[in-house]
């Protein structure tokens, strides 16, 4: 199942990362992303799907500007 929560990578061992969600730790495969310890990630069915991006605030702001112009 897809977890919309961001989890934090606390350890990477070969292909498997330990991801922490407020003190709950699960193992996740790293084969779909390039990831390092300390990254926040999205996990689905035992695999990391994506690393959380840092550019989101500016991009959302820009999108809202476009939406207002369109209307």
């Amino acid at each position: 199942m897809c977890v919309a929560l961001p989890g934090k990578v606390i350890e990477i061992n070969d292909r498997t990362a330990t991801v922490d969600f407020s003190g709950n730790q699960v193992k996740a495969d790293t084969g779909l992303v390039s990831v390092k310890e300390g990254d926040y990630v999205l996990v689905h069915a035992g695999c990391i799907m994506q690393v959380m991006r840092k550019e989101e605030a500016e991009e959302l702001e820009e999108l809202f500007r476009e939406v207002e112009e369109n209307a």
């Binding site: 999205l42 994506q50 959380m52 991006r53 989101e56 959302l60 999108l63």
Partner: peptide
């Protein structure tokens, strides 16, 4: 229009490795 309100994890091109 295609709008991305989830830029936290979604990009225009997606996860190309996957």
């Amino acid at each position: 229009k295609v709008m991305n309100f989830y830029p936290k994890v979604v990009t225009a091109e997606g996860n190309t490795v996957a």
